[in-house]
Amino acid sequence: MGGVGFAVGVLGGLLLAHAAYATIQYRGMLKIVEEEFSGPPMNVVVELLVALVLCIFSGLTVPGKFLSILPDSDDNRVVSLPANLDFMIFNHRGRVFPSNADLKLKI
């Protein structure tokens, strides 16, 4: 998906550049026929709109997934507090339940 999105973005950029080039050419032509510039021609406007859509598409897909900002979504909903490890104490029932005696650190 990332590759496709990137390619679409490049295409959009090229279209934008082409639209700019076409406008410059159009103004040059207007100078020759001695008319006033009132607005870009139709094909440039269409090109700009297509380029806009393509650039938005790639801008939304390339950087990655959207993250939820709702406080009650599964990503953000807080279900438990972390164990307060800085204040942990050791006189609890762990003493009574001996762990597996085979465990040993080999040095």
């Binding site: 942990m88 050791f90 762990g94 003493r95 001996p98 762990s99 465990l103 040993k104 650190l105």
Partner: peptide, 21 residues
């Protein structure tokens, strides 16, 4: 991490080894 876990399980021998390392 293992040293603290070992203390929590009262496996002081393992904790001691980890701390000495």
């Amino acid at each position: 991490q293992v040293a603290i876990a070992a203390m929590d399980c009262q496996r002081l021998d393992i904790a001691k080894d980890c701390i000495s390392v």
